[in-house]
Computed example of a mutant assay.
Amino acid sequence: MTNKDLTPTIAVYGANGHTAGHLLTELRRRGITPILVGRNAERLREAALAADLPDAEIRLADLDDRAALVAAFTGADVVISALSAFAVLGAPVVEAAIAAGAHYTDTSGEQLFVKRVLEEYGDRAAATGVTVIPGITDNNLPGDLLGHLTSRRVPGPAALVVSHLSRSKGNGSKGSAKTVLASLDWFTSGGYHYEDGELRTGPLTRFTEVTMPGDTTPTAVSKFPQSPVITIPRHSDVAYVAGILDSEILTHLGEFTPEALESIPDAPSSDLRYHVIVDTVGTDGTQVRGLVSGVDSYRDSALMAAEVATRLATGTARPGALAPAEAFDPVDLLDSFVPHGLTWTIESR
């Protein structure tokens, strides 16, 4: 379905979470009154009022009721899924969106879910004439776009490492903690990296230390399951792609328990500035760094999901399951976020 001339109709599933609150506010800023879909009418109505959307339509559908989900998404140009723990909960929403003839995007940050969507739903989406783009977050979207751009600045096949650095050391939301806990073994094991034409598990073989922006000495890093590891090889000439995180942070992550989840506030810290860093090395040793600096991880994820959704509503991206850089021009998309306080650069090193 496309809606090139009219205000798009966008349905949001999981509209009462922290990121979703930012998402609803951003859609309202764009003049869009979304359809709120979920299982609890009272919580959805509260979310609509909090976003100053008193006239928003509420549609009820449980994740285990496929017919209700399809009915709830019917008539929408685009569905945005704003769940937590996508690896456990996310599949019914993308399946129902495709069945309803709606384009789809989400705020998942989970490597396993992004991989599943790209591998399992592409043919179905293409046959229906819709576009599916998973994994639109403050880390995944910039990482994918920067991977596309930096890999073209060096002789290929390139080697890349993607990292996310908190500039404020703030704490995430309870929803983010639920996502990590649902796939804790995968997060602590490091997940996939891409090497010599295939996805692999196991330790880093490159980039075990990285000098972060503003630092003069390198930081010890460990492998972390960043979703651009899945998406960058789809569109760029690469021999190696890995996600990393400060080793000290990952040590604390390994100590996370269900009991600890209960003590985490629903809302995250107020200061959530961050960097997304893509370091790229060519076959001749040429080094390039791509950097996106953001304002608030949750707000920016919502901003990015809203932008992708409104672009999907125009119907200009080809049908199927796509990485962001396969669907849109990377420079144009990154530039669209600059008026909202995000900056991006690519520099030789």
Rank of each mutant, 00 (worst) to 15 (best):
A76L: 01
P92S: 10
E119F: 03
A102C: 02
T107E: 05
A82W: 00
S84E: 15
A126K: 15
R66S: 14
P92I: 09
A97L: 08
D65L: 11
S84H: 15
G109N: 05
G101D: 11
A100E: 04
V114R: 03
A61I: 02
E119W: 00
D65T: 12
L69D: 09
G109C: 07
R116G: 12
R116A: 15
A91M: 09
Y104G: 02
T107Y: 02
V70R: 00
S108N: 14
L83G: 03
L60E: 12
L112S: 09
G75H: 09
F113P: 07
T74L: 10
L83D: 06
E110W: 11
S108L: 08
S108V: 02
A72G: 01
V94L: 04
D106L: 08
L69V: 13
A87Q: 10
A102Q: 11
H103V: 10
T74A: 15
D106M: 08
A68N: 13
L89T: 03
E119M: 04
L69E: 06
I98H: 05
R124S: 14
A71D: 12
A87K: 06
A76D: 03
Y104L: 08
V93C: 09
A72C: 03
T107D: 12
G90V: 04
E95L: 12
A72L: 04
A102V: 08
Y104D: 12
G90Y: 01
F73E: 00
D123W: 00
D77A: 07
A71F: 00
F113L: 05
D64I: 05
A67D: 15
L63N: 11
S81R: 01
S108A: 13
L69P: 08
E120A: 15
D65A: 15
K115P: 03
A61N: 09
L83F: 01
V117Y: 01
L89V: 00
V88P: 00
H103K: 00
P92E: 12
A61V: 07
L89P: 00
D64Y: 13
D62P: 02
A102P: 13
F113Q: 07
F73T: 04
A68Y: 04
R124L: 08
A99M: 10
V93F: 06
I80S: 01
A127N: 04
A76R: 00
D106F: 06
P92R: 11
